[in-house]
Design a protein around this nucleic acid. Structure first.
Lengths: 224, 224
DNA sequence: CTCTTGGCACCTAGGTGAAAATGT
DNA sequence: ACATTTTCACCTAGGTGCCAAGAG
């Protein structure tokens, strides 16, 4: 079942350990990211988060947002996201039992794309100043999309991933690429891509928490 | 009367002339700015452009937009605007003659503020890539404004000014400040600050050309 | 009288899920 | 049957000029 995992957001092995060539650049190894709206993500995750994908592209809700710390204030960084398949399966939803069932092997993988945060590149000080929000990121199921959106297979599970990349001013910076980035995965943000919501409780939670989804708010009844 | 002046946008004296300490940094002296929507600005200017100022802050229309060239693609620049009084007078509008009359000396000058383009700082290559638009800039008549808006006196005339500032990485860069910027004034963008439109033809032109102003467009009559 | 303020109806622009239509 | 596409009413968010009322 979807959703379980450690509450940490740091991929093991990226710590600033020891000397030698295997370490990370000191300007990225102390980077830390705290997921915003964590309790909302967890609420969705308990039900099994679903994200709509459309031909034109649909935003995620909740929006993926992080608070950064530990960057070098005066160094340049690029921030980006990608999405990794959580398994090699295709799913379908059993309405009678309100649960997801494996429906076979995964479809051919969609073109792997990344989404650069539109403010990239920017100084560490700028990134740490306020919450970094990926609200321009859109998900699509159109394999031929030419709007630069993230392409996903519907009825497949994904794990959002967040990357902090140091802009290395050195010549031959490609040769140091492996030590110039740090990645973060928050298990509570994993989701099932769908073209229409399957679990009614997900629909209800979206309506209750997304201001753009219609519906009366907060016990406010219609005006008489 | 408002509106006359040379069609050039370059302030004389900023050219890259000669040797010696009086010149500009080579990374700014070749900078050039072309005003976008020039014909619309001129159309307004012929009538005597008016810009609304409100307590909450009002955008300019037309929006001040420029196309930049001649920057060093890899150098960092800050782009900003300020507004200089065109004279020391206060005006009033004579409806019967449809003309502006001098109504006395200028009120005490409003706090001088500048508006940094929100993408600042950025590389020359980034600034030159597309049109730079100051559509976040707002004008207010609130002397105590704390939203960072440009404060102007109503019934006074102003000349918008645009500045390209090189971010100088050298220590003691303050000592070179005078040679690290280049300024542009487009006479066709001068305007009268008002709290309500005075010239009806200005109102009509705003409605006809600003998508946010209501009114039927393009001879399209109401549905039947 | 001249000028300013605040509410408001009416726009643009674009993010929602519902539901019907269309595949497969 | 299951999944996708399309359309649409209904939102948020915010930029307009208008007009009545207020302030000097």
């Amino acid at each position: 079942m979807p959703g379980e995992g450690p509450p940490s957001g740091t991929v093991p092995g990226w710590a600033c350990e020891g000397p030698g060539a295997s370490g990370k650049n000191r300007r990225v190894c102390h980077a830390a990211a705290r997921l915003e709206m964590g309790s909302l993500w967890e609420e969705f995750n308990r039900l099994g988060t679903e994200m709509i994908v459309t031909k034109a592209g649909r935003r995620m809700f909740p929006t993926f947002q992080v608070k950064l710390s530990g960057l070098d204030p005066s160094a340049d960084y690029v921030l980006l996201m990608d999405f990794v398949p959580l398994d090699d399966k295709r799913y379908r939803y059993a309405f009678h039992s309100s649960s997801w069932l494996v429906a076979g092997r995964a479809d051919p993988a969609a073109p792997g794309r990344v989404h650069f945060h539109p403010d990239s590149p920017a100084k560490g000080a700028q990134w740490m100043r306020q919450i970094v929000s990926f609200d321009k990121l859109k998900l699509t199921n159109n394999l031929l999309d030419d709007n630069g959106h993230i392409i996903l297979n519907s009825m497949h599970r994904y794990q959002p991933r967040f990357h902090v990349v140091l802009v290395d001013p050195r010549r031959d910076s490609e040769r140091f690429a492996h030590e110039n980035f740090k990645s973060f995965s928050f298990p509570e943000t994993q989701f099932m891509a769908v073209t229409a919501y399957q679990n009614h409780r997900i629909t209800q939670l979206k309506i209750a928490s997304n201001p753009f989804a219609k519906g009366f708010r907060d016990g406010e009844p219609e005006p008489w």
